[in-house]
């Protein structure tokens, strides 16, 4: 992948809370981290510590109160329309909760076709693209007509991942991807993620409250405590 590193510099995020939104709640304070292409940065920390917020900010889905998110050397808030469109496609998020990640009213086939039409895939290629994707993530064609509620947690997660892969992302922010899964299914998904990282050269920001999972998946690890990021280098 030609893509450059994805960096966060001094990200601070505050929310206004309270009855008349007069109070400030600081979720992140001066957080900086870098995700290198093809590598995994693991983010740990207790629930509600701000990990998900950081993930959304780095993905460009939320603006920080202060600080920058840089793709290569360019700040994403300063990007032109075309550049931002490319960024938007290259940085994807896999959301927590496999049951909410897919439209419950759409079949597997419909959910996948949506993405393929977004990519303007020619009609005659749609079927083969779909087939390849299903194979890559370990789903079968028989499941095409199923609804998410008829699939297991692991299958839903595979489908969510498969749809993301169609966009050929350079980075995926994974927000608690296996927290809701059974232990043996979790092992399968973690292996799938590792295989994909190697074959597609994707950088991961792996967010989880489960330390053992984070350590298994990551090249670099950091923990969010009280809104601040403590990396392994710091704590040694």
């Amino acid at each position: 992948m030609f893509f450059l590193s994805l960096r966060a510099e001094n990200i601070t995020k505050e929310y206004r809370t309270g009855l008349f939104l007069g109070q400030q709640r600081r979720v992140l304070s001066e957080v900086s981290l870098e995700i290198r292409p093809g590598e995994t940065f693991g983010l740990m920390g207790p629930s509600g510590a701000g990990k998900s917020t950081l993930g959304r900010v780095i993905a460009g889905l939320e603006a920080p109160t202060s600080g920058k998110v840089l793709s290569g050397e360019i700040e994403i808030s300063c990007m032109g329309r075309e550049a931002y469109r490319t960024f938007r496609r290259k940085v994807q998020v896999m959301f927590q909760d496999p049951t909410g990640a897919l439209n419950p009213r759409k079949t597997v086939s419909e959910s996948v076709r949506d993405v393929l039409s977004l990519l303007r895939t020619p009609v005659h290629q749609i079927h083969s693209e779909m087939k390849n994707m299903l194979e890559t993530v370990g789903l079968s064609e028989e499941q095409l007509m199923r609804y998410p509620s008829q699939l297991s947690g692991g299958e839903n997660q595979r489908l969510a991942l498969g749809r993301i892969l169609l966009l050929k992302p350079s980075y995926i922010i994974l927000d608690e991807p296996t927290s809701a899964l059974d232990v043996s299914v979790q092992a399968q998904i973690l292996h799938l993620l590792k295989d994909l990282q190697a074959s597609e050269d994707i950088g991961y920001l792996f967010i989880s409250h489960d330390e053992s999972v984070v350590r298994y998946m990551s090249d670099n690890v950091g923990e969010i405590l009280d809104g601040r990021l403590v990396t392994e280098d710091d704590s040694s």
Binding site: A59, R88, Q92, G100, P104, V115, L118, I164
Partner: peptide, 12 residues
């Protein structure tokens, strides 16, 4: 919900 956020993220 996740699938709407996901769609936004994909650029729909």
């Amino acid at each position: 919900m996740g699938f709407v956020k996901s769609a936004e993220c994909m650029g729909f």
